[in-house]
Amino acid sequence: MKAWLTALTVLLCSGLALALGGAMLALPEFAVRLPAQVTANLDTSGVSHPVTAVLLNFRGYDTLLEVAVLLLALLGVFALSRHADEHAPRATPAHPVLQTLARLLAPLMVLVAGYLLWVGAHAPGGAFQAGAVLAAAGVLLRLAGLLPAWAQPGRLLRGGLALGLLVFLAVAVAGLPQGSLLHYPVSMAGALILLVEAGLTLSIGLTLAGLYLASAGAKR
């Protein structure tokens, strides 16, 4: 019976994969040439890397809403883990080799995150990648027992979590008098994008690390 169910599942999944692949191959030619449009407008975006230009300028809406969704996900984790933390979560001491490694690697990871943020303007990189590296540093420090879990995030931490979204919203609204939401003036676009990305890096790093740090303190 179980073998039959497994076979049926595999068959259905393979069928779905084949159907999706077939649908992708049967897609008609795109009527709008988006890559050409991005290349044509790259000069006005304030950055020279097309991916960053799309994420933070041409389709800024998507990124703004993604960051909001990320924050909501973390709030959900907080709501779930709040009642389970009657034992004060403290860092358990790890092996000294891991602790030394974490102490050596964490500053380097912060440096790499800063580099990724800066290089995002003209090469692969950007706020999400930099934030993910920051978050990885946080998780590593937590695993080495050097960072306590977040039972009750303080005011500073909560401010840091919301900072990226707030900066992004402020920049988005600031463009309203000139025309529309999220419309950057061409001369300031580069600086504004860097400002938004710097805020996003910090908040995304804290949020992604928080997904781990908040749940890791739930029950130990």
Binding site: V51, P124, Q129, A132, V133, A135, V139, L208, L211
Partner: peptide, 13 residues
Amino acid sequence: DIALAEAAIGAGL
């Protein structure tokens, strides 16, 4: 870009 995100978020976190 996607490779960086996949390695950091998909595999790491």
